[in-house]
Each structure stands twice: as C-alpha cells, then as structure tokens.
C-alpha cells in the first residue's frame, strides 16, 4: 500500500513539468493568435486614443516577458485573470461552466456505456447474429451523424413536433432556479437540497443532449468492446476455462470481459477527454452553458485570460483523468503494477 502511495506521489510529481509547459505554451500561443484584443474590445467606433486606453487597462502595453511574470504571479495566488468577453473572473467562469460540461459529458458516457458495453459483449458472443448487425448499424450511425445534426433532429422531433421534451433552454427551464450550489452538478445539488422538482426538471433538460452525445460516444466504445471481447474469447485461458467446465457466466464476465476491459477503459478515457472539450455544437444547440463554447468564443475574441484558463483547466483535468485510468488498470489487471514503473 505504501508502495502504491509513493507511486501515486511520483506520478503527481511528474505532472508538475507538464503543467509548467502548458502554462508557457498557452501563454505564447495566445499571444501568437492573430488579432489585437485591445482593438477588439475597444469596439468598432474606437479611435487611437481609446484603443491605447483599453490596451493600458488590459496591461497589454507592457513587454511580453513582464506580462508573463505578472500572469505567473497571479496564477501562483490562484488568480486566473478576468475574461474580457464574459466580464467575469476566469475562475468564476470555469467554476460555473466546467460542472455543466462535466454533468452532461458524464451522463452521456454513463448512458453510452450502459448501452455500448452489453451491446459489444453480445455482438462478440453472437457473432453474425442480428444483434451483431444492430451493433454495426448503431456504430456506423453514431460516427457518421454529426452531433449538431442529431441534436437538432432530436429537438425537432421530441420538442417541436411531439412536445415531449422541455424547451432546449440550457440546464434548467426559466421557471426553476438553480439549486444551492455545492458541487455545481444540478442533479446532485438538487438532491442534496431535497428539491425533487428541480431534480426532475434538471433530468428532463439533460435527456436530449445526453442522448445526442451518447449516440456519438457509443460508437467507439461498442466497437472496442466487441473487438476486445472477440480477442479475449479466442484466447487460451478461455479455452482452458471452458475445458475446466466453468459456468458460462463465469467465463464470459469473470475472464472474458475483465480481460477485455483494459482497452475499453483506455478508449473511455480518450472519448471523455475528447468530448469534454469538443461538444461545442451540442452546447450551442441546447443553449448549454458549457466549457466548449466558452473556449471557442474566447478564442474568436482573442480573450487571452479565458483561453489560458481553459487550457490550464483542461490540462489539470487530463492529468487527473490519466491518473485515474492508470489506477483503474491496476484494479482491473493486477499484473499491471505501479511499482514497476
């Protein structure tokens, strides 16, 4: 156990240079973006004098090196600066938007795992059967339908035509107010507050965007489960288990699935990190106040602090995610030890 704690400590220490690199690179890259934020935020009517005033107000008149050390100094005090395009401190923005994105992404991943893993297993076990074909159709549809298309289609059918879904107006309909903030996840916060009505409303708002994202993320997970299962089922230890007369369930889930899980978890991690930053289109369609649209708008406006804050938050998130995935490897397959690394 002590060995594992030390290994985790080592892993955490290894992330420090990564984060330093991220800070430097994001600073340089934002400055390399075309466009001058002072000009952008001074507005179209501004003259030279007012642009200069804005530039000074934003601290952009100082040399780059000085700007960098000011930024790092603020960062050390936990101050990510202020986004000009939203007018809020970047930390406030991230605290408001990251849980929104995480809530959506995690629900989508949960839903897609619930569908994709059993589907992949069944497709592998009954290769060539109708369920295998269903799996193939779903996977093809999932990857070939762009998320904004699925999103708009679902809104059209379930909100516009049938009226089953609530108005696609973000995390909560305007008649409800957000639950007292504890985690930032409305589902959890509303339960903590004992407010079942808001919980229900949150769940209803989540349904369509979750299905949209789940359809998209389902494909790689189902595909990977099927392939990994096929490989596992054709291996020697399964044959041995069969020969030893173990029960079908034990063979399938105890030996087959458990060994097939490694690549699935890896894929899951990749899909998660990809989707979290890349679900801009879903966020736009459902007016979801998430991190993806925040980053894109900040980029368009050359909003340095917001872009840097986003990149840093994502880097931290990925580092944590990778750590969790590595740890879960060891849980799934005890042969993968931490101490050996």
């Amino acid at each position: 156990m002590a060995g594992r704690a030390r290994a985790i400590g080592m892993r955490l220490a290894q992330t420090v240079p990564v984060l330093i690199g991220v800070v430097i690179i994001s600073f340089i890259l934002t400055r390399a973006l075309p466009g001058d934020p002072a000009v952008y935020f001074a507005g179209a009517m501004a003259d030279e004098q007012s642009i200069q005033q804005v530039r000074e107000a934003l601290g952009l008149d100082k040399p780059l090196v000085a700007q960098f050390f000011l930024y790092v100094g603020d960062l050390a005090q936990g101050d990510l600066g202020r986004s000009i395009s939203t007018g809020q401190p970047v930390l406030t923005d991230l605290a408001a938007r990251l849980p929104a994105s995480l809530e959506l992404t995690l629900s989508a991943l949960l839903l897609s795992c619930l569908i994709a893993i059993p589907l992949g297993v069944l497709a592998a076990v009954r290769q060539g059967s109708w369920i295998d074909h269903l799996c193939r159709v779903l996977v093809t549809a999932g990857v070939s339908l762009p998320t904004f298309f699925t999103g708009i289609l679902l809104v059209y059918i379930f909100y516009y035509l049938l009226g089953w879904a609530p108005s696609p107006l973000g995390r909560l309909d305007f008649i409800y107010f957000e639950p007292p903030r504890v985690t930032g996840f409305y589902l959890i916060d509303s339960l903590l507050a004992g407010d079942l009505e808001t919980f229900g409303a949150t769940l209803r708002q989540l349904t369509l965007p979750t299905i949209t994202l789940a359809l998209f993320t389902l494909a790689p997970i189902a595909r990977m489960t099927r392939a990994a299962m096929l490989q596992a089922l054709s291996s020697d230890y399964i044959r041995t288990a069969r020969a030893a007369g173990l029960s079908r369930g034990k063979i399938l889930f105890g030996y087959g699935l458990r060994n097939a899980l490694l690549p699935v978890v890896t894929t899951l991690g990749m899909v998660f990190s990809f989707v979290l930053g890349a679900n801009v289109l879903v966020e736009k369609v459902f007016a979801w106040p998430g991190i993806g649209s925040y980053a894109v708008e900040a980029l368009v406006a050359s909003d340095y602090a917001a872009v840097q804050g986003f990149v840093l938050a994502m880097a931290l998130l990925f580092v944590t995610l990778n750590l969790i995935i590595d740890l879960s490897y060891a849980l799934i397959d005890p042969r993968i030890g931490f101490d050996t690394k």
């Binding site: 904004f148 809104v155 696609p168 107006l169 459902f286 007016a287 649209s293």
Partner: peptide
C-alpha cells in the same frame, strides 16, 4: 440561446 434552429423552434 446561441443556436438559430433552437431559437426558431422555441
């Protein structure tokens, strides 16, 4: 509501 199609449905 950033998306035009969504606003139109609303």
């Amino acid at each position: 509501v950033p998306n035009n199609s969504t606003r139109r449905a609303l």
